[in-house]
């Protein structure tokens, strides 16, 4: 095996691990959002990951969580001996990079920026929103199949796991919903009810309409944010040139065009 394909293969491993890192606010993988700019392997099995958020002002708490997520996931690869994470062009970038690359524990780094509190509350709030969004997609998919609220609320976990969705969104979200249910211990075994709230209460037929409406608000909000972030990520560092044909967006040169070789190779 020659060296070049080997490197490409290892880089692919890294990109695959990065898919497990999500933006906590959007519940979307950072790779999907286009946040990861570059993956670089150095000779001694060390990996450097550069990432960039849609704006200089994106919330630093989420930037921290994503940076630590990258460190955690890439370090899981058995061949990786060291991980360096670089957040670029961010108002809190220096602190994030220092924190994530210092080797210190996650909670220790946050304590100094949290007035002694920790990030658990914020993380929990957004994990609950992620759960609601995933469940909403699954419920919408089931309703679209013509199932009634009564039938849906009586479903068992084993039965839900067997459902095949035609729609892309429900198909993508079902495994993510099931994994969060299991992770949280909200449903154990195939006979457990498939639909409960984040707090563990059963979703009932009588409460179904209200429940779905509430989830919908969360989903709309997250989709809206996701659309905004995707768009801003795509236009960051681009300028408008007004030519004879009217205005066009051109890449802002001066060395700031985002490097995307990694993404291109993966595709």
């Amino acid at each position: 095996m020659t060296v070049a394909p080997l490197i490409a293969e290892l880089e692919f491993d890294v990109w695959e691990r990065l898919e497990a890192v999500t933006d906590p606010e959007l519940d979307e993988p950072i790779t999907e959002m286009g946040f990861v700019e570059r993956v670089t392997l150095t000779g001694d099995s060390r990996v450097r990951i550069e990432f960039r958020l849609p704006t200089y002002w994106c919330s630093p708490n989420f930037a921290f969580l994503m940076a630590f997520g990258i460190r955690r996931e890439v370090a899981r690869l058995p061949w990786v001996k060291g991980v360096e994470v670089q957040l670029q062009d961010h108002c809190f970038g220096e602190q994030v990079n220092e924190g994530v690359n210092s080797g210190r524990a996650y909670h220790e780094v946050f304590a100094e920026y949290c007035d002694g509190a920790d990030l658990a509350e914020v993380e929990a709030k957004f994990l609950a929103k992620a759960f609601d969004r995933r469940q909403e997609s699954v419920l919408s998919g089931l309703l679209a199949q013509g199932r009634t609220p009564g039938a849906i609320t009586r479903m068992r976990l084993g039965e839900l796991a067997e459902v095949t969705f035609g729609g892309e969104e429900a198909r993508a979200q079902l495994p993510r919903y099931l994994s969060l249910l299991a992770e949280r211990g909200l449903a154990r075994g195939p006979e457990a009810p498939a639909f409960v709230t984040w707090e563990g209460a059963l979703v009932t037929e009588a409460g179904f309409a209200d429940h779905v409406q509430r989830l919908r608000s969360t989903r709309i909000n997250m989709e809206f944010n996701g659309a905004m972030c995707r768009g801003l990520a795509a236009t960051r560092y681009k300028e408008v040139e007004i030519g004879p044909e009217g205005p066009t967006l051109v890449d802002f040169i001066q060395g700031r065009v985002p490097p995307r070789e990694g993404a291109a190779q993966r595709a």
Binding site: S59, P60, N61, F64, C91, C114, D115, A117, D118, L119
Partner: peptide, 11 residues
Amino acid sequence: GPTIIPLSKDA
């Protein structure tokens, strides 16, 4: 807008 610190708050 996104407030910066403390990180323990939703910005």
